[in-house]
Amino acid sequence: MILRIRLLLYISVICLLILSSTFFLPYGFSAIHEGWSATFWLFISNTGGTIGVPLITLLFCILISMHYKGWKSKLLVITGALVVFSLVLGVFARLNEFFIKEQLKVERPNIIFLHETMGFDNEAFYSIESKDERRVFIEDFFNGQLSQVILFDDEPLHSKVIRHWLHETGYSFPSGHSVNAFLMAMLMAYIILFIYSDFRRRLFFALPLVWATLVALSRVILGVHSPIDISLGAALGCLMAMLIISTRLIDTQLTPKDAVT
């Protein structure tokens, strides 16, 4: 277990260092104009959202179940893993969105940009409690005052980025995508290290953390989060995962007695 934790700590530090580069490199708002870049980063961001995370979780649980013999064992592993992931991710997602963010009330970078450059009333926007009503408020602003043309650095925004901004109407800190992606990735990486003993397959433990890093970066690149939002969010996700791992719950539940040899 100590070796597995060391490996996780090493790669998580590398990932956090990569995210810290957003403080001094021009990542912010760098993929919001027309072109393949915006489409690519929107896709990456969506994999860490409300649709992407459940799909990735289900796929991962199915892949892990292949390590066990018999349909009964496979179904138990899939069901158990889905329940655990759903509870852990779901509880914190709601805690973050409806309590932590609402207490800290940090405005999103794209809202600050609209306020400073186009006169968007950010105070009126955030005074609205319902996110659906906030979405209507900002959509009316786009359609009414800007004639559906929104410029950043004298170039129009990608229409998909505009729709993304319309969807992201909550507060900014910490980044829920970053927290959930790193929490999920750390648990997945540990499970891979726990189940597989051969070096070649164990190397795949890095893939979930590469994905989580890209998801976090996408939030800054699309202008909906700041560097501190994603860096501290990712660190919080890693910390929560390590606390769960330290309970040895994963070790006891993923017993190798039914494993494929």
Rank of each mutant, 00 (worst) to 15 (best):
F204N: 11
L187H: 04
L232R: 00
I195A: 02
I244P: 05
R202F: 05
G223V: 11
P208Y: 08
L254V: 03
L209P: 03
S246E: 12
T252M: 12
A212M: 11
R201Y: 13
L207E: 00
A212T: 01
D229L: 07
V224H: 07
L236F: 15
I245P: 05
Y196M: 07
S218D: 03
G233M: 03
M242S: 04
I244Q: 01
T213F: 08
M188E: 14
I230W: 09
R248M: 11
P227L: 04
H225V: 03
D229P: 08
H225W: 12
L187G: 04
L239I: 13
C238S: 01
A241Q: 07
R200G: 05
G223A: 06
L236W: 12
Q253N: 11
I244W: 02
D229K: 03
L254T: 02
D198A: 01
M242C: 09
R219W: 11
G223Q: 08
L209C: 06
I195G: 06
R200E: 14
L243Y: 10
V224F: 08
R248A: 09
L214G: 05
V220P: 06
R200A: 13
L209H: 01
P208L: 02
R200N: 13
M188Y: 10
R201F: 14
R201N: 11
I230S: 08
L243H: 00
P227Q: 02
L187T: 00
A234T: 02
A206V: 15
A216Y: 09
L187P: 02
L193C: 07
I244G: 02
A189Y: 01
I245N: 04
M188A: 14
A216S: 15
L214F: 15
R219G: 04
L254Y: 13
I244H: 00
L239W: 10
D251Q: 11
I228H: 14
L207N: 00
S218N: 06
G233C: 06
L209E: 00
I245S: 06
R201S: 10
L222G: 04
P227E: 00
A234H: 02
L207V: 15
M188H: 05
L243D: 01
A234V: 08
F199L: 14
T255P: 01
L236R: 00
I230F: 11
L217R: 01
A241Y: 10
R219D: 10
R202W: 08
L222F: 05
L217A: 02
V220I: 09
F204C: 09
T252E: 12
F194A: 12
L232S: 13
T213L: 09
R219K: 10
G237V: 09
D198V: 07
R201P: 01
L203V: 13
I228M: 13
A189W: 04
V224I: 14
D229F: 04
I230Y: 08
R202P: 08
R201D: 07
A235G: 12
I195T: 05
M240W: 10
L236H: 01
I195L: 13
L236M: 15
T252D: 06
Q253H: 07
T252L: 12
L239F: 15
S197F: 02
T252H: 12
A234W: 07
R219Y: 11
F194T: 09
